[in-house]
């Protein structure tokens, strides 16, 4: 089984780091992973996305995929293209308030004020990490403990001071979700 997750937003929201964290955590839990991010020439403000593919065996999937199982939409900037990729039974997590587009996704959906939660905790750039914590809580695609474990190693050495804040952000996101909404691996498949 392969699960494709597309994280989409604008530069500066931490989308690439959240994707990297998801990939690292999945690998830590013994799965095969592939991640591919795109971002424009600008470091801040342009549209950015990252695709993470998580599976059991050797992945033949190319870095670009047509259909994804899950989406974390941090901003509406490239929503039309993103929504086209999301499978109708896939799981969608929206960044409430910041995300302003019309959403007609028929499958399971969770709207959470990730940026708002991060801003309240005085970490406005950690919105994607809040969203990732929430996504993990809603899908069990990876465990929160694994995400907290890898928070430091995914950062370049010159940014390691942000590890603690990112842990807090993921925890806040996780706590904001009451329970599983759409199981990524099914109960039996969950890696213990």
């Amino acid at each position: 089984m392969e699960r494709e997750i597309l994280l989409s937003g604008i530069g500066g929201q931490g989308v690439q780091l959240a994707a990297r964290s998801l990939a690292q955590a999945a690998m830590r839990e013994g799965r095969r992973v592939l991640m591919f991010g795109t971002y424009g020439g600008m470091m801040r403000g342009g549209d950015t996305d990252a695709t993470v593919v998580i599976g059991e065996d050797s992945l033949m999937t190319p870095p670009v995929v047509d259909r994804v199982w899950g989406v974390i939409a941090m901003h509406h900037l490239s929503w039309p293209a993103v929504s086209e990729k999301l499978r109708s039974d896939g799981f969608l997590l929206l960044n409430d308030k910041v995300f302003q587009a019309e959403n007609s996704h028929p499958g399971p959906c969770l709207s959470i004020g990730a940026t708002a939660i991060a801003t309240e905790a005085e970490m406005p750039q950690a919105g994607s990490m809040v969203a990732l914590g929430a996504f993990a809580a809603a899908t069990n695609i990876v465990r929160l403990e694994t995400l907290l474990d890898i928070a430091e190693e995914v950062l370049p050495s010159y940014r390691s001071q942000f590890a603690e804040g990112n842990r807090k952000a993921m925890q806040l996101g996780h706590d904001a979700v009451s329970g599983s909404i759409c199981e990524a691996w099914g109960v039996a498949e969950a890696v213990s």
Binding site: A23, L34, M35, F36, T38, P63, V64
Partner: peptide, 9 residues
């Protein structure tokens, strides 16, 4: 670009 930016084990 794909090879430079794909992340794999």
């Amino acid at each position: 670009y794909y090879l430079a930016h794909v992340i794999e084990a």
